[in-house]
């Protein structure tokens, strides 16, 4: 599909062990899909493979952005193609300030020889930091270094907002967040929802989906999607627990 993130028959392994097993998913622009499932079922692997992480072996399958396969491309090329991954555990980069980091990322998107407009850049950066209730002094701080869990996740959303991607994959963004931070982060995401953008929200808990209300909920188990439904499915999962998934689908996948 032209305007979608599409994963087709994806088989992925690491060190010879199969993690994703014929995984299929389509997220059209304008929609928010949640991907839920027990730990160790392959959710984070999917996120990293889509972003071009070199540790995983793609056995077969495709990941299409607007119909173009991105598997095999370098992580920076995939980023330029429009995919943004909000990390579950954002890396700390000592000595590289937030302002310089985001600036380098934006600069990399400009044609050779063209320089970023510093005044416009800071105006934009400050406006988005204000919206995320981040202190402007943060721009000079080393990226994620010594940040609390909530600060790191806000910083991820800030980067996402600044880079304006077409496809946002959010890996366990709710982990390590208190309710206030969760609300601020969710507002930031909701503000970015548009018909020109798609979200894949990976989460273990239903809690986040009270704030970022999904159009579709997928349940993942043992390397593939085993069940899909609307937002009510997330609530059902919450009340029944993941054991229900295991019981219902373990036999099917065995």
């Amino acid at each position: 599909m032209k305007h979608s993130l599409e994963v087709k028959n994806l088989h992925v392994s690491i060190d010879g062990q199969a993690i994703l097993k014929d995984f299929n998913l389509t997220v059209p622009k304008g929609e928010v899909h949640a991907l839920m499932g027990p730990n160790g079922t392959g959710k984070s692997t999917l996120a990293k493979v889509m972003a071009g992480h070199e540790d995983y072996t793609v056995e077969s399958g495709e990941v299409l952005l607007d119909g173009v396969n991105i598997l095999g491309q370098e992580p920076d090329e995939i980023s330029h193609a429009g995919l943004f991954l909000a990390f579950q555990y954002p890396m700390e980069i000592p000595g590289v300030s937030i302002a310089n980091f985001i600036r380098a990322a934006k600069q990399a998107r400009l044609p050779e020889g063209e320089e970023i407009n510093a005044i416009e850049y800071y105006k934009d950066l400050y406006a988005k930091m204000d919206a995320l209730k981040m202190d402007r002094k943060f721009t000079a701080r080393s990226l994620n270094e010594g940040f609390s869990g909530g600060e790191k996740k806000r910083c991820e959303i800030l980067q996402m907002a600044m880079l304006d991607p077409k496809y946002c994959v959010m890996d366990e963004t709710d982990s390590g967040l208190d309710i206030d931070a969760l609300r601020i982060v969710s507002e930031g995401v909701n503000h970015m929802r548009s018909e020109h953008r798609a979200f894949l929200v990976i989460t273990h808990y239903q809690r986040l989906l009270d704030y970022i209300v999904p159009d579709v909920v997928h349940v993942m188990f043992d390397g593939r999607i085993v069940h899909s439904g609307d937002k009510e499915l997330a609530k059902e999962l919450e009340s029944k627990g993941y054991d229900w998934v295991k019981e219902a689908f373990a036999t099917a996948s065995a």
């Binding site: 972003a51 071009g52 992480h53 070199e54 370098e74 992580p75 920076d76 995939i78 980023s79 330029h80 943004f84 991954l85 990390f87 954002p90 890396m91 980069i93 000592p94 000595g95 590289v96 310089n100 980091f101 985001i102 380098a104 990322a105 990399a108 998107r109 080393s142 980067q159 880079l163």
Partner: peptide, 26 residues
Amino acid sequence: ELFYMMQRGIPQRVAMQLMVFGFFEE
């Protein structure tokens, strides 16, 4: 760290330079 920086669209060469300057910043 390199993967993280490249995921934001920063080419490897630039990412390594940033890391080195970051290392020296202190």
